[in-house]
Design a binder for these strands. Sequence first.
DNA 1: GCAACCTCTCAGACAGCTCTGAACGGGCGG
DNA 2: CCGCCCGTTCAGAGCTGTCTGAGAGGTTGC
Lengths: 246, 246
Amino acid sequence: MNTTRSGRPALTRPDGTPLRVLVVDDDPDLAEVLSGALRYEGWRVRSAGDGAAALAEARELMPDAVVLDVMLPDTDGFAVLRSLHTVKPDVCVLFLTARDAVEDRIAGITAGGDDYVTKPFSLEEVVARVRGLLRRAGMARQQEEGPRLTVGDLVMDEEAREVTRAGDLIELSPTEFELLRFLMRNPRRVLSKAQILDRVWSYDFGGRAHVVELYISYLRKKVDAGREPMIHTVRGAGYVLKPVSP
Amino acid sequence: MNTTRSGRPALTRPDGTPLRVLVVDDDPDLAEVLSGALRYEGWRVRSAGDGAAALAEARELMPDAVVLDVMLPDTDGFAVLRSLHTVKPDVCVLFLTARDAVEDRIAGITAGGDDYVTKPFSLEEVVARVRGLLRRAGMARQQEEGPRLTVGDLVMDEEAREVTRAGDLIELSPTEFELLRFLMRNPRRVLSKAQILDRVWSYDFGGRAHVVELYISYLRKKVDAGREPMIHTVRGAGYVLKPVSP
DNA sequence: GCAACCTCTCAGACAGCTCTGAACGGGCGG
DNA sequence: CCGCCCGTTCAGAGCTGTCTGAGAGGTTGC
């Protein structure tokens, strides 16, 4: 079976083969980091540095999804989107855009079911969005109950951004939500503060690991409040999320 | 089963296959955005940039409906309509026209069961009209109760443009109505302001996301007034419409 | 041409979020 | 047993996101 590097079963195409994703960004470092994060999901990933290369790769790879920087050296993202659709009409696109550029050309993009994130973003965010796009487009095999994440009696509905424990609703801030999502995607596995920082916080975040400790403590107050704890500290190593009983 | 990208069951042909729609507009960006929005409904979409290409595509696709710009580089929309009818006599047509364009000629067209919207339009409007055309023409399989949208005790009759909550009639302005329709078509899902803006406001609207907040507040006053709230803010993410109890 | 309504902009108030610094406490090695 | 270090928690500053009211400009209908 096709699996992620983390051992979790991968989100695959309906026929069980790995999903294909193309990353297009002119910053090679960023493209590399993104590719790595997507590959970690068990997907087949290629990358390109400009619009022309993107088209060439797309013709060869026939990707299910494209992660596409709006600002490219040769063309703009919108033109690339059109060309991509002629190559593969049902391709999903996640745009990467600068915060202050949001207003200009993004209009209309999300209307087609595509999506975007603003730089600087967290990898967890990008991966989650791509996963959401693929699932909604019906390109990914529906796992169990679809967009529902479950660890013990803790349940997260990613689309509704709703979290419950033993049926009780838990309200979370955006950062708390992303941190918990990362933990829930990697249950029973110790995650180092560095890993968490790299994955949940923006790639250009200069802060220290102390923030992670702080947000873990916030999460504990809300998730474990008065109940049997699910979030555990592993001294010198990191944190684990585990279901209570076994 | 054939489904929309949003996961909702798609409006299909009587035999269950996807509906086919042809988009004809000489502005490639607009054609792209329209195609995206229609594809998002789970339909099979092709597009063309002029009358000749439209005919060629139509012969191949045999569309159930055509979204047709009246002003084309080579011919005018009415001539195209005539040719289309020779290719597929029962095709439905939604005309796209400038506000100040000849209303009289359009008026004659709509008598034949076809419809039109004036530029600039919102995507929600176009999609709703196409849906209406197909339904009235009997080309689409009637789903559940047809043009009735229900979320909890909130009910919208799209054709009568009537909304009730717990039986009480709620009067809405056009924009309020479209916003609520979009929310009701995507219940329990967080919708970002950008998504809402792209979908409910005209494609050329240059304004900021602030309008969305404003109209959400109008809706709350009318829909949630004194009752258990159904419209919820998800800080940093967007808004959700949810039935009250579960 | 007047009145009513609809739509959108602007600016201010407010609340919640994010992160810093600093103090506290408990495990673990010496 | 002591001291160090890791982890936790608290308090607070600054920022951002969200809501509201007032009002201008435009359109529609009478």
